[in-house]
Design a binder for these strands. Structure first.
Length: 464
RNA sequence: GGCCCCUUCGUCUAGAGGUCAGGACGUUGCCCUCUCAAGGCAGAAACACGGGUUCGAGUCCCGUAGGGGCCGCCA
């Protein structure tokens, strides 16, 4: 049978980075085996699930390029399916109605706790002869009292649980809704899921789920439990460690390639390789190379990777991507040769699209804003004659190109006995407003003769 | 507390009994250089601890410690 995997987020908030890594592993596994990747929305929590959250999840998945073959299915559409299966289990004697009230159960649990024991349902309703049909009831699975349940985990090997640890747990609530474990199993079974790849916080649920599969006489899928992503303090990654939602990273100027590459490498590896195209990830991804230990989220490495992709993607694509970021700053531009040139000289010093957009503004606005410290240090009386000489020489220059400009600067430094840095820095401040920029000749070439002279003249007025 | 999972540089990891324990991010120094980057070179930096098994253990076994997860009519 061909591989069928699923990603099943619950739409109770933003799509979390940890969840996305699980999605990536599932997606890669499906693509690697030419199988199917199924998207399922676990929205049975009616109070916390929102439509906005569903829309955001779908949006983020598309942005990351994690396309799905089936779905999105919603559990809320499938209630009758769960109920028909729970009824079937009652009929064949694998499940039973339980009339114990929540209050009663709560009291018994507290009693057990007082004795320092873990409460397990004692099977009060298990052998009820004639059920009182008018009282509300939950449905419990009849579970074995002895023996053990083995989970064959593709990442961790065999995990054994004692049957005594598992009581007759509820599969359908009094309100007719399935419990999580039951819904998951029915969904995975009816969707013919072959491999369940999910977070290791589900390990303890797995024996219960296996018991449901067995009661249903359904084939048990293969399980693979991936370790959690931790924050820098080794606690589970959460909002207090910084941004955790995919959308937040998009807004901070991260590229989807970088995020996918980074997340894929968190807990998975392929020798010493760090950079992977999506194609390579698909070819090389296997569960055997997924590690067992939890991984700490390392924002610096993500940033480095993002910078790598900014430097190495085609400049035209990067140029197109920064347009919305420029727009947010109130700068309207179109994708043209000039913008591509700007991106080309700026991108090796930017780690995010936001940085790139910020560093390009002096090319795109009419008037530069001087940084105060830079102005004070470099727009001085010593700079005046240099600016004046430059204006004179540049005015008569026909070819406003890097080699020509280099020549002119060479002449001026020689004549005045200066080092290049002594004139490059004041000019840089005059042209860009700051002390940091790409090579000054490249900047001048892109700015063009007119703009350069205009800004030098303005700098002279600023000094006087 | 019970059950379960995990443990190689600060971080991500390679390592499937014999390696000077390798790579990457970060970090330090140097080179390049008109600033800042990028790039190049060099360096510091790890097998949690204790017992076994073995000629030999990061690798296998058992403990200990530490971290994490689950113990709901939540998902």
């Amino acid at each position: 049978m061909s591989v069928r995997v699923r990603f099943a987020p619950s739409p109770t908030g933003a799509l979390h980075i940890g969840g996305v890594r699980t999605a990536i592993f599932n997606w890669l596994f499906a693509r690697h085996h030419s199988g199917k990747f199924i998207l399922r929305i676990e929205d049975t929590d009616r109070t916390r699930s929102t439509e906005e959250s569903i829309a955001e999840i779908l949006d983020a998945m598309k942005w990351l390029g994690l396309d799905w073959d089936e779905g999105p299915f919603r559990q809320s559409d499938r209630l009758s399916i769960y109920q028909s299966y729970s009824q079937k289990l009652i009929q064949v004697g694998k499940a039973y109605r339980c009339y114990c009230t929540q209050e009663e159960l709560e009291a018994r649990r507290k009693g057990a706790e007082k004795l320092g024991k873990v409460y397990r349902y004692e099977g009060t309703c298990r052998n009820l002869k004639s059920p009182t049909t008018d009282k509300p009831y939950a449905i419990r699975l009849t579970t074995p009292e002895v023996g053990s349940i083995e989970v064959q985990d593709l990442i961790r090997g065999t995990i054994t649980f004692d049957a005594k640890e598992i009581d007759d747990f509820i599969i359908q609530k009094t309100d007719g809704f399935p419990t999580y474990n039951f819904a998951v199993v029915i969904d995975d079974a009816t969707m013919d899921i072959t491999h369940v790849i999910r977070g290791d916080d589900h390990i303890a649920n797995t024996p219960k789920q296996i018991l449901i599969y067995e009661a249903l006489s359904q084939e048990i899928p293969k399980f693979a439990h991936v370790s959690t992503i931790l924050g820098s303090d080794k606690a589970k990654l959460s909002k207090r460690h910084g941004a955790t939602s995919v959308v937040a990273y998009r807004e901070m100027g991260y590229l989807p390639e970088a995020l996918v590459n980074f997340l894929a490498r968190l807990g998975w590896s392929y020798g010493d390789q760090e950079i992977f195209t999506k194609q390579e990830l698909i070819e090389k991804f296997t569960l055997e190379n997924v590690g067992k230990s939890p991984a700490v989220f390392n924002p610096e490495k993500l940033l480095w990777l993002n910078g790598w992709y900014i430097r190495n993607k085609p400049a035209e694509e990067i140029a197109e991507l920064i347009i919305p970021f420029l727009k947010k700053k109130g700068i309207q531009v179109i994708l043209d040769e000039r913008l591509i040139k700007i991106v080309n000289i700026l991108r090796e010093r930017a780690k995010t699209l936001v940085e790139l957009a910020n560093s390009s503004d002096y090319f795109l606005v009419d008037e530069v804003k001087y940084e105060e410290a830079a102005r004070k240090k470099f727009l001085t009386n010593e700079a005046l004659p240099i600016f004046e000489a430059l204006i004179e020489r540049l005015s008569s220059l026909d070819k406003f190109t890097v080699p020509e400009l280099q020549k002119i600067f060479g002449e001026i430094t020689e004549k005045r006995g200066l080092k290049l840095v002594q004139i490059a820095q004041p000019v840089r401040v005059a042209l860009t407003g700051g002390t940091v920029s790409p090579g000054i000749f490249e900047v001048m070439e892109i700015l063009g003769k007119e703009k350069v002279i205009e800004r030098l003249e303005r700098a002279i007025r600023e000094i006087s």
